[in-house]
């Protein structure tokens, strides 16, 4: 049994005029200790998926259906009280914007200690010691001093480290990181990615990394899940995905990113491969494949029959009628 099993997850939102199908029929697993990346462009449903795992979506206007089984228990049926016990202790989350997710009126130490005291019944002194220990672990210099500082006294990179310290304070089994480095500069991003990789091996948490940055995926993840318009279009080991992307959307994405060092080979400027058009409106019903309108390979059948996710190679799944299959159904 996987640590987290998501089955047929649907997250819909009702607006004044329509129902927005933000996530529509998503299934995936995360094994214990694994690093899974979820990539996709804005509006593909990757962030709401992570919010739904922690039970943080406002319902209504949202509605979540399907199953999110964590250690075999369906979180969608858990009470708010049970979820509170789980959040921070077994499943933690890191957000994109460290400044807004830290509470400005409490010290860093208090915020790290809070979850320790809440979930492990630690005393104030124990919590304080644990906070210092965590700050040292995430590489914040002079943690004895920093522990009593407020978020605004830390730099952006330091704040993200503090966020990670809070998230990891109770050794969670699953860490959900929603664009954890997007707001950071490249040199700081490199630090944070190294830190997360390092901590993953030390603490042994599984990490679900939500990002739009294919570079970050390649550096960090073991397995990748590509989302488009609320659906999973491809899933594979990171090496396989980058070597042989099997869904036209993934191929398009990989070709559209300018790559460091790639333009130097030619004197004339190269055009980037574009994906024409724009993402479909999720508040209107989609027939067939969600990517059909932008897909270079689309045929008439793609607009009629919604392609199922099929194993195209061992451990490599794609939802495309015309992506060649290397194995006969694994």
């Amino acid at each position: 049994m996987a640590l987290l099993e998501v089955r047929d997850l649907q997250i819909h939102f009702r607006t004044a005029t329509a129902v927005n199908r933000a996530v529509d029929g998503l299934s995936f697993d995360i094994e214990a200790g694994e690093a899974l990346a979820v990539v996709g462009e804005s509006g593909c449903g990757k962030s709401v998926t992570s919010m739904s795992i922690l039970g943080l979506l406002p319902t209504p206007p949202g509605k979540v259906a399907g199953q999110i089984n964590f250690r075999g228990r369906n979180l969608l049926e858990a009470s708010e009280r049970q979820m509170r016990k789980l959040r921070g202790a077994e499943i933690s989350m890191i957000f994109q914007e460290p400044m807004t997710s830290l509470n400005p009126v409490f010290t860093i130490g208090q915020q790290i200690g809070e979850s320790v005291r809440l979930h492990e019944n630690a005393s104030r002194a124990q919590a304080h010691d644990r906070a210092i220990e965590m700050l040292r672990l995430v590489g914040i210099p002079s943690p004895e001093r920093r522990v009593d500082e407020y978020p605004h006294q830390l730099s952006g990179g330091m704040r993200q480290r503090a966020m990670i310290a809070i998230a990891l304070a109770c050794n969670p089994a699953l860490l959900v990181a929603d664009e954890p480095t997007t707001a950071l500069d490249v040199t700081i991003q490199a630090q944070i990615l190294d830190l997360m990789q390092d901590l993953r091996s030390k603490v042994g948490s599984a990490v679900m990394l939500i990002t739009h940055d294919l570079g970050v995926v390649a550096e960090f993840a073991e397995r990748v899940l590509v989302m488009y318009a609320g659906r999973k279009v491809e899933e594979a080991k990171v090496g396989d995905l980058f070597r042989t992307p099997r869904h036209p959307y993934t191929q398009g994405l990989l070709n559209a990113v300018p790559k460091l060092g790639s333009s130097l080979t030619t004197a004339e400027p190269v055009r980037l491969a574009e994906i024409p058009g724009r993402v479909p409106d999720l508040s209107k019903p989609l027939s067939g494949c969600a990517f059909a309108d932008r897909c270079p390979r689309a045929q008439e059948v793609c607009r009629r029959i919604d392609p199922a996710l099929e194993a195209k190679a061992p451990g490599h799944f794609a939802a495309c009628h015309f992506s060649p299959r290397e194995v006969s159904a694994a």
Binding site: D8, Q10, H12, F13, R14, T15, A16, T17, A18, V19, R21, D24, G25, K63, A65, R297, Q299, V301, R304, I305, D306, P307, A308, L309, E310, A319, H321, F322
Partner: peptide, 27 residues
């Protein structure tokens, strides 16, 4: 790449249904 002409709809794997979980607001 083009589809073989003789391929029928049945040979394309269709994704499972995506049921409606919220009733749409009245128009």
């Amino acid at each position: 790449m083009t589809a073989p002409i003789n391929q029928t709809d049945a040979e394309f794997a269709a994704a499972p249904d995506r049921p409606q979980i919220l009733t749409p607001p009245p128009q």
